[in-house]
Measured scan of single mutants.
Amino acid sequence: ETIMEVNLLKGPKGLGFSIAGGIGNQHIPGDNSIYITKIIEGGAAQKDGRLQIGDRLLAVNNTNLQDVRHEEAVASLKNTSDMVYLKVAKP
């Protein structure tokens, strides 16, 4: 597993990826991690090219996303300014 830091500039459609996982909404049984499950065509993440489906999202800005509820992860992604710092684990 490789840890990678990505600074992503939000586009008109936001960050351009979808997530799944978290406490109460496990993407993988027994694993509370938050995973990237979709990269949106023409979105910021696709244009940047570094994020991939299956990457594990560890942090957004200063918010640690390990062992959080799905709703908390979504809220932390929404409550960001235009430049967003992401910390991901690549499988």
Rank of each mutant, 00 (worst) to 15 (best):
90 K>F: 02
79 N>G: 12
48 D>L: 04
4 M>Y: 06
32 N>V: 06
16 G>V: 00
77 L>T: 05
86 L>R: 00
69 R>F: 04
34 I>T: 03
60 V>D: 01
57 L>Y: 00
45 A>E: 01
11 G>F: 04
85 Y>F: 09
87 K>Y: 04
60 V>K: 01
31 D>Y: 03
36 I>V: 15
89 A>I: 10
47 K>V: 08
59 A>P: 00
30 G>E: 08
56 R>D: 00
85 Y>K: 07
39 I>S: 01
9 L>P: 11
41 E>I: 13
57 L>G: 00
34 I>H: 03
81 S>N: 15
18 S>L: 11
23 I>N: 08
89 A>W: 14
72 E>C: 09
80 T>P: 13
81 S>P: 07
68 V>H: 07
49 G>M: 04
31 D>I: 04
57 L>K: 01
44 A>K: 11
1 E>R: 05
27 H>P: 04
62 N>H: 15
49 G>F: 02
16 G>S: 01
74 V>W: 10
74 V>G: 06
81 S>D: 14
23 I>W: 12
57 L>S: 00
4 M>L: 06
18 S>I: 08
72 E>L: 09
81 S>R: 15
67 D>G: 13
79 N>Q: 10
73 A>H: 00
53 I>G: 12
32 N>L: 03
48 D>Q: 04
50 R>K: 10
80 T>W: 06
27 H>C: 05
40 I>N: 12
85 Y>G: 11
69 R>K: 12
82 D>N: 05
22 G>V: 02
70 H>T: 07
40 I>R: 12
41 E>D: 15
77 L>F: 11
24 G>D: 10
12 P>N: 10
1 E>P: 03
44 A>M: 12
85 Y>H: 15
6 V>R: 02
91 P>M: 05
50 R>S: 12
89 A>M: 13
16 G>K: 01
69 R>S: 15
91 P>S: 12
14 G>S: 05
86 L>H: 00
68 V>C: 15
41 E>W: 05
67 D>T: 15
18 S>V: 12
77 L>R: 00
50 R>Q: 15
8 L>V: 08
35 Y>I: 15
27 H>L: 05
53 I>C: 13
10 K>Y: 09
49 G>Q: 14
32 N>K: 05
65 L>Y: 05
9 L>G: 09
4 M>E: 06
85 Y>D: 12
75 A>C: 10
52 Q>M: 14
66 Q>A: 05
71 E>A: 12
84 V>Q: 03
26 Q>N: 13
16 G>M: 01
23 I>F: 07
62 N>W: 04
29 P>H: 12
85 Y>W: 13
75 A>E: 15
28 I>Q: 11
61 N>D: 14
30 G>C: 13
3 I>E: 05
45 A>K: 00
17 F>D: 00
85 Y>N: 10
22 G>Y: 02
11 G>N: 14
13 K>T: 04
30 G>Q: 06
89 A>F: 15
2 T>N: 15
40 I>C: 10
16 G>L: 01
38 K>L: 08
21 G>F: 02
51 L>N: 00
8 L>D: 00
29 P>W: 10
7 N>S: 09
46 Q>Y: 10
43 G>E: 11
26 Q>W: 06
23 I>S: 13
88 V>L: 11
17 F>I: 03
67 D>H: 04
5 E>G: 07
90 K>Y: 06
87 K>L: 03
20 A>T: 10
25 N>Y: 11
55 D>K: 00
77 L>C: 04
68 V>D: 02
27 H>K: 14
89 A>E: 08
7 N>F: 10
36 I>R: 00
79 N>P: 10
80 T>A: 15
1 E>L: 06
33 S>N: 14
22 G>C: 02
83 M>C: 15
60 V>G: 01
63 T>C: 05
66 Q>I: 07
3 I>C: 05
4 M>N: 08
9 L>I: 10
87 K>Q: 06
6 V>C: 04
59 A>H: 14
82 D>F: 03
59 A>V: 13
88 V>Y: 03
40 I>T: 11
9 L>S: 14
70 H>W: 06
19 I>M: 07
1 E>A: 05
88 V>C: 10
64 N>Q: 08
85 Y>L: 12
30 G>T: 06
71 E>K: 04
34 I>P: 02
26 Q>A: 12
64 N>F: 15
27 H>E: 11
77 L>P: 00
60 V>R: 00
31 D>R: 06
